[in-house]
Amino acid sequence: MFAVATAAVLVTMGLALVRAALGPTVFDRILALNMFGTKTVLLIAVMGFLTGRPDFLDLAIVYALMNFIGVIAVLRFSKYGHFADPDREEVT
């Protein structure tokens, strides 16, 4: 059962990779990156149960958090073109 789940996650990883490579828009690629991070979290969890040692589930949670923050940063950057506070820039 876990083997089938692993195979499904790997196939989805491949599809996300294809989307990231083909594009065509910026947001296709950002979505593919975000999706790939989520699949990494799932792969860590499934592999933990497949090998009978689900000790690294905490690590999967931290990956999920970091993926979220990273995608927020990339989206913010693609919208403003920099990381400065947009309100503060208006004051200057």
Binding site: A20, A21, V26, I30, L33, T40, G70
Partner: peptide
């Protein structure tokens, strides 16, 4: 290059 950066992120996850 934008796409290349996204693919490098995927490479790191892999």
């Amino acid at each position: 290059l934008w796409a290349a950066v996204m693919l490098m992120g995927i490479y790191s996850f892999l």
